[in-house]
Write a protein that binds this DNA or RNA. Sequence first.
DNA 1: TATTGTTATACTCTATAACTATA
DNA 2: TATAGTTATAGAGTATAACAATA
Lengths: 150, 150
Amino acid sequence: MTVENPPLQRTRETSRALPIALLRARETVMSPIRDMLHDLNLTEQKWRILRTLEECGRVEQSTIAKEACLLLPSLTRILRTMEADGQIARAADLTDKRRTLVEITETGRAILRDNIHVSNGIYQSIQSQMGQEKLDTLLDLLQELQQVRV
Amino acid sequence: MTVENPPLQRTRETSRALPIALLRARETVMSPIRDMLHDLNLTEQKWRILRTLEECGRVEQSTIAKEACLLLPSLTRILRTMEADGQIARAADLTDKRRTLVEITETGRAILRDNIHVSNGIYQSIQSQMGQEKLDTLLDLLQELQQVRV
DNA sequence: TATTGTTATACTCTATAACTATA
DNA sequence: TATAGTTATAGAGTATAACAATA
């Protein structure tokens, strides 16, 4: 009677490891955006918050945290400075006083409007090199991956 | 004679914006890995360094920085603690004394070996939900995106 | 002169727990 | 009791510049 060894597991090539592959791809795309954010004196996190708020309208903080991939304590601090800088506004939720509703201000909107050509330019540059079809497929697959139950 | 307005540019849905889509997808995959790293008392950065070193063998620090998406000053500090913990070893490059060559130790290798079933398990869970073909396509497209000139 | 890596510094985010107010 | 958000705190990474050693 023989006892089989457990299957020997090997590490995946880093280029085929999802966490690393996703990070490296993101670094490529973020590089020129970081230059823009540097000039705007905005962090990546603040940029994500502005984009989230523009899209979601007036929302509670837990929603922002989830959409922008931030922890609530971080968000509390970041929103405090963004409010001081006039980029967002907060108001109490009258139906549930535990909640705070946040929305983007005209100042915040203007920041996005004045710089959207940068992200659109990057997008177009990628599109011209990869092709529209591949880019759509990639975005579809990323959305699907995001929803996987791990 | 009329002067045309510049084309009005609109912000992309965040789910179709590459930096955010890549980040959200990565958060999904990283969530269980973070639990593992927490138990191992390792940061994400140290994990990437170990994976990079296992794959690249003995390499200089600039290479690690590039592959693991870290800045050199960060790497200097992180490698100092990893060396103290016996996970990596450093040796001077005899042919170019400015360079330091870094390699993974047996202790470092053991950490990867003892935990690779976690990342493989996540990979298989994703594979079973998305299918092998889509997952391969995603990894191909990520590799292609990483190499785009932005 | 350019490159590799280190040091120093200021800033920011992460992670966790404890807390307040409200439901 | 549970939830939304805040505060406090420790730890870690980011970004930049200045520096040393070597090529």
